[in-house]
Design a protein around this nucleic acid. Structure first.
Length: 894
RNA sequence: GCGGGUAUGGCGGAAUCGGUAGACGCAAGGGACUUAAAAUCCCUCGGCCCUAGGCCGUCCCGGUUCGAGUCCGGGUACCCGCACCA
């Protein structure tokens, strides 16, 4: 069944149920819990009591805890991924608040970016209006989730107040030599006259215009992140609350490699006036296997030679068309252009190597030149095979150190022993690299160099909807930073998007200003900042969202780093690395003294859903599809036409595949608590979770189940005493289960094991439901249930806070559950009186043994040997060995 | 291409340090209640031999160990990321 059918006329199923049964007046039928009434009610009360507003005062006395979910881009509607992300953070926030921390849990909007401009072009709207409208509707949606957020700190990165501070930061960075200008390549769409993002280049063509994309050089601003490459790399080790995967991705991204810068004297100069070619190599040990040199198409030598060589010009042009992404470069067919140059081999007297311009050599890594050693580098091998160049293997395996490895289609890149390699012969890779550098260094032909894959961060964007870069171009003074007292440089509102290009460029007046240095008329910079800049410091702004400087240094030092940061794995590299750089840069500029912004990081999985297509291949929404049958007989038809629908794969919810579920519908039908509960149940939080209607219904059944349990016990609990030395056996069993569960759930939440905590809560409700009959209850049982239910409510309230409040009130407990301290479990009650030890014979389980947890090894051995099964299996023989693992297992080896 | 990840019933998953594989949920089947439906409650639910019970079983092949889903070596399949999307 589809959701639209369940929700009927827009009434939730609980209201429908209660309406149907309101006349029955049967005492044993409790009213169904009505989330539609209860959720707004509690949200209003929390709001009025300002329950979630944080006292960020450094002197507040409580220990600070900062939990933050990656702030959303205001696309217009929240999606299930947001629900999952923000629920996780909210559970942590509510739990930590109960544990006595002063919790900071804010929300904001990553509000600059291309989609607003695209919408402006498509729908003739203004990016600003579009963005703020989206924020307004998403805020309403997020609020309906019942998140314990301090909304008084909310801001959007497109708020003038925010980007004014960002401009101030930029000026500070400029002062501290953390930003500079240089030329860089961009994807240029010659028809739309605009710069394209990599993702807007499809098969080498612009996504809108279809025109062939060119690589064009522009002067742009760069952050000097590569100066911090080593520091950013080394500090990764100390991020012990980050996923190993993310740490590895960051190290690879920084890509430190040690190698040598090697000079090759030019022999055949073919008309150039260059005397040497300098290349970078991490494998100078394999120089004896070199058979050619390759330089980037954009290498100065290549560019110089192209002036008098039209064929080379064409080749360079061809290379420029190629995509700039790593995947494009690695997968493109290797192509070269013989420049007619040769260089001298540094080790082999009289040997020369031909020089090619090649498409697989990057100008912006190393020196833009490499020596080609085909036997020991796959790219070089591919190139050599194509141009029929010599392949000389100079490495042997460690097992057969005398014979060079034979190379046909796959280069040998692993460790080994060098052969036929002069001074390096007989040495292992690492040692040989050192030898090569040392020998060449003596002849002044090489020096050791550390290179990083990490490049400086280009922040200039030729777009309107971003933070203006606060500099002025003056004919007299050149590039002049704005003065801080002149900030903000505000974006003009009167812009149009009917013509291609950046509206700031063609604005009649905005560009005109006076030079801050000489006072003469000058022009503003029209580039705006990369939106990654906006998100690189927002976490620091939440501490003093209205401050007149970017941060309050003492406050930032008190609250940062963020204790728990939660977001998608897609930000594993750039956003997190940029934020790490920004924290360092902000420390240098005196805004705080924190180098690592995020102490704990958690990357959650996506929300996925089945996708559907009609007979013409058009994507259909889940609400347009009616499903029936199961397994192979599972069928889908169109809800309106009845035509067959093809059931597609389970994929990330996306607008293009129309397989999204609107959280609003779910909240209307089942309530926010159900949505929150389901998003955390089943799948571990770091993995993808599949949205299914059945799963949501299951979660909702549980909501009702809790409500029934609480309702039927409410009278008994209200008149019960606190549990103390209970005689009733069942009551004691409940107490033990309660304390055990409480302990386990606390541990689970601390470790973000939400799915495990939820499984435990299911078990616990099963235990409470089956442990006592309310009609035959006694004072002891009532007491145990009073404690048990209070633990239950407190344990699930972080996930289902509205239901928690309703149940708390129903049982007559004081105050709000959201204000309660986390209950303390009693360790003595959280352990079992007896434990069941599995007894294995030769590693196979044959029996159970019930023992006291403190039983000695001897006692366990004796009890084991007295078991019928063991006696039978031993058949009079003495066992070879008895392994007793305390509190775990017994294994009898026969 | 490079880098990373994952693999357990019909499905999502649990098993925290190498110690009872399949907790918990979903789906399914059977039953109770009901005029009926919904809701709820009870039972079954990895496969095979089916007898108390036994044998097999965590992607595949091998190894270490009293004991392997977990550790080691080799392989297979699928998924994700790759610098101007946020």
């Amino acid at each position: 069944m589809t959701l639209s059918l369940i929700s009927g006329e827009g009434l939730s199923q609980d209201i429908l149920h209660n309406l149907k049964h309101s006349n029955r007046n049967n005492k044993m039928t409790t009213e169904r819990y009505n989330s539609r009434a209860s959720e707004p009610h509690w949200q209003k009360i929390w709001d009025e009591k300002k329950l979630f507003e944080t006292n960020t005062d450094v002197e507040s006395g409580k220990e600070p805890y900062y939990v933050l979910e990656m702030f959303p881009y205001p696309s217009g509607r929240i999606h299930m991924g947001h629900v999952r992300n923000y629920t996780m953070g909210d559970v942590v926030a509510r739990y930590k608040r109960a544990k006595g921390y002063e919790v900071l849990h804010p929300m904001g909007w990553d509000a600059f970016g291309m989609p607003a401009e695209n919408a402006a072009m498509q729908n003739n709207t203004h990016p600003k209006g579009w963005t703020y409208d989206n924020i307004a509707s998403m805020r309403t949606q997020l609020k309906s989730m019942g998140l314990s957020i301090d909304w008084s700190r909310e801001f959007a990165t497109c708020d003038v107040d925010y980007y004014a501070q960002q401009q101030a930061l930029f000026l500070d960075f400029l002062k501290h030599d953390l930003v500079y200008r240089k030329n860089a390549k961009v994807n240029w769409d010659p028809v739309d006259m605009t710069v394209l993002a990599n993702e807007q280049v499809i098969d080498g063509k612009g996504w809108r215009s279809g025109a062939e994309v060119e690589q064009r050089e522009l002067t742009q601003w760069f952050f000097k992140i590569s100066d911090y490459a080593d520091e950013l790399l080394e500090a990764i080790d100390e991020l012990d609350e980050w996923p190993a995967k993310v740490k590895l991705m960051q190290s690879n991204w920084i890509g430190r490699s040690r190698g040598a810068k090697i000079k090759f004297p030019l022999i055949e100069k073919n008309g150039t006036d260059t005397n040497e070619l300098v290349c970078f190599s991490t494998r100078p040990d394999t120089l004896y296997g070199a058979s050619f040199m390759a330089i980037a198409a954009e290498h100065p030598i290549s560019l110089e030679m192209s002036k008098s060589n039209p064929a080379l010009q064409a080749f360079i042009k061809e290379c420029r068309k190629m995509g700039t992404s790593a995947a494009d470069i690695e997968t493109a067919e290797k192509q070269g252009f013989d420049l007619g140059l040769t260089v001298a081999h540094p080790f082999i007297e009289g040997k020369t190597l031909p020089v090619y311009a090649a498409n697989f050599v990057l100008m912006d890594y190393g020196t833009g030149a490499v020596f080609g050693c085909p036997a020991h580098d796959q790219r070089d091998l591919d190139f050599a095979r194509k141009y029929d160049l010599e392949v000389t293997s100079v490495v042997a395996t460690i097992d057969t150190p005398d014979m060079a490895v034979e190379v046909s289609d796959t280069a040998y890149v692993d460790d080994g022993v060098l052969v036929n390699s002069g001074p390096m012969s007989g040495q292992r890779k690492e040692q040989a690299i050192n030898t090569a550098i040392d020998v060449l260094a003596e002849r002044n032909l090489a020096e050791e160099e550390i290179n990083y894959r990490l490049r400086d961060w280009g922040l200039s964007r030729q777009r309107y909807w971003g933070c203006p870069i606060p500099v002025v171009h003056c004919d007299n003074c050149g590039v002049v930073p704005d003065k801080k007292e002149n900030l903000p440089v505000e974006l003009p509102d009167d812009v149009t998007f009917d013509v291609p290009g950046n509206p700031l460029d063609r604005h009649p007046t905005w560009r005109n200003t006076d030079c801050p240095s000489c006072g003469k008329p000058a022009k503003r910079e029209t580039d705006t900042m990369d939106t990654f800049v906006d998100s690189s410091w927002y976490f620091a702004r939440f501490i003093t969202p209205n401050g007149e400087t970017p941060t309050d240094r003492a406050g930032a030092n008190h609250w940062l780093p963020v204790d728990q940061y939660i977001g998608g794995i897609e930000h594993a590299i750039l956003h997190l690395l940029y934020s790490r750089f920004f924290s360092r840069a902000m420390s240098i500029a005196g805004h705080m003294d924190i180098k690592e912004p995020f102490k704990g990081l958690f990357t959650q999985g996506m929300v996925v859903h089945e996708s559907y297509r009609d007979k013409d291949g058009a994507w259909l929404q889940p609400t347009e599809v009616v499903l029936s049958g199961e397994g192979k007989a599972r069928k889908a038809v169109h809800a309106k036409t009845g035509e067959d629908v093809k059931i597609g794969g389970i994929e990330k919810m996306s607008k293009s595949k129309r397989n999204t579920i609107d959280p609003d519908d779910i909240i209307q039908t089942y309530g926010a608590d159900t949505a929150r509960w389901f998003m955390l149940s089943d799948s571990p939080p770091e993995r993808d979770v599949e949205w299914t209607d059945a799963g949501a219904e299951g979660a909702h059944r549980f909501v009702q189940r809790i409500w029934r349990l609480v309702s039927i016990w409410s009278d008994n609990v209200k008149s019960a005493n606190a549990p103390d030395s209970l005689k009733d056996e069942k009551a004691n069993a409940i107490r033990k289960a309660s304390h055990k569960t409480l302990k386990a759930i606390g541990d689970d939440i601390e470790r973000l094991g939400f799915n495990r905590a939820i499984a435990r809560l299911y078990e616990y409700v099963n235990t409470l439901s089956s442990s006592g009959d309310v009609k035959k209850s006694n004072a002891d049982l009532d007491s145990a249930m009073k404690e048990g239910l209070s633990f239950l409510i407190q344990c699930f309230a972080p996930v289902m806070p509205h239901l928690g409040e309703t149940c708390w009130e129903e049982l007559g407990f004081d105050g709000l559950v959201s204000e309660q301290s986390w209950p303390q479990h009693d360790d003595a009650l959280a352990v079992d009186d007896t434990i069941i030890l599995p007894v294995q014979i030769n590693g196979k389980k044959r029996a159970d043994l019930e023992v006291n947890p403190d039983a000695s090894t001897k006692e366990i051995e004796d009890a084991t040997l007295a078991l019928d099964v063991v006696i039978k299996q031993l058949d009079g023989k003495t066992p070879k060995k008895i392994i007793v693992v305390p509190k775990r297992i017994v294994n009898v080896v026969v």
